[in-house]
């Protein structure tokens, strides 16, 4: 325990610096800077609402809110895991010179994206006002959803960064996977028909969909199912344990491959 506290004390500053670096560099030399993290989801949501609202003839007033809540979660997951998967290779020159716990690199990548994600949550307020959907007390569900999301992203980031050291293909493979995940997360369509069909398992066993559903519940004011909670929690724990296990097992070999 004492070891752990010392460890945190020792590396807190470094982790902070790495997170800061990610945030600073992301919007460096752009005029609007961090405001982009608000504009970007808004613009894509407008497009999605127009396209899919017309295509599926969707007239529900809460449809924009539905889309943006799903999209925000998905975007964070994809950005953070992508960044984490490259983190070890990108910091190769540091790793070759100085010993620091290597998990700090993928972790910092996920965390800096998390900070930006938190900022981008502001757009939810705007869209909620636009959709005339006042928050209910069910908004507390946002907290577990955000916790699950962070844990699952860190876990996935650890696994991906480990794999990427040994196989560059990981990045490209993960890009393809992320696209598939996007279509399987019911971001821009309503899941009811899919849930009634024989393909319900696609959503039920998709941890990211479960998290999105909980998150939407908090915004739109409905209670997510117990299954969503149980599965998202179980999968998050699995992801982080598996991620730490794999990373820890392989981290001493990183130096030989980067």
């Amino acid at each position: 325990m004492k070891f752990l506290i010392n460890h945190i004390k020792r590396y807190r500053f470094l982790l902070g610096e790495l997170v800061k670096k990610g945030i600073r560099l992301k919007y460096r030399r752009s005029y609007l800077g961090v405001i982009w993290s608000l504009i970007e989801p808004l613009l894509t949501t407008v497009v999605l609402v127009i396209v899919f609202g017309t295509l599926f003839n969707n007239k529900k007033p809460t449809f924009p809110l539905y889309i943006i809540s799903g999209r925000l979660i998905y975007t964070f997951f994809s950005q953070s895991t992508k960044a984490a998967s490259k983190s070890i290779r990108k910091n190769a020159s540091m790793i070759k010179k100085v010993y620091v716990p290597k998990y700090l690199y993928p972790l910092s990548q996920v965390l800096f994206n998390y900070v930006i994600f938190m900022i981008s949550l502001i757009v939810l307020v705007l869209v909620a006002v636009y959709c005339k959907t006042p928050p209910t007390f069910l908004i507390w569900q946002m907290i577990p959803a955000l916790v699950f999301l962070l844990v699952i992203s860190v876990g996935a980031g650890m696994v991906l960064s480990t794999m990427d050291v040994f196989f560059r293909d990981t990045e490209y493979l993960w890009n393809v996977m992320l696209m598939i995940i996007m279509y399987l997360c019911a971001i821009f369509y309503y899941p009811e028909r899919l849930l009634k069909s024989g393909f319900a398992w696609i959503l039920k066993y998709n941890p990211l969909y479960c998290i999105i559903d909980i998150f939407r519940g908090s915004v739109l004011g409905y209670m997510a199912t117990a299954w969503d909670y149980a599965y998202a929690a179980a999968f998050s724990i699995f992801a982080i344990v598996f991620g730490i296990f794999i990373f820890d097992k392989k981290q001493d070999e990183f130096i030989l491959h980067i």
Binding site: F13, L14, L18, K21, S93, M94, K96, K97, V98, V100
Partner: peptide
């Protein structure tokens, strides 16, 4: 450790920022 000096910096970062980052990696406090 004075190994491969000049490697390990972030190229987009300024010298000021790199001093803090690099220092943090070396275990210096703020």
């Amino acid at each position: 450790p004075l190994l491969e000096l000049g490697a390990g910096f972030d190229m987009q970062y300024t010298a000021r920022e790199n001093i803090y980052l690099y220092g943090a990696v070396l275990g210096y406090s703020k």
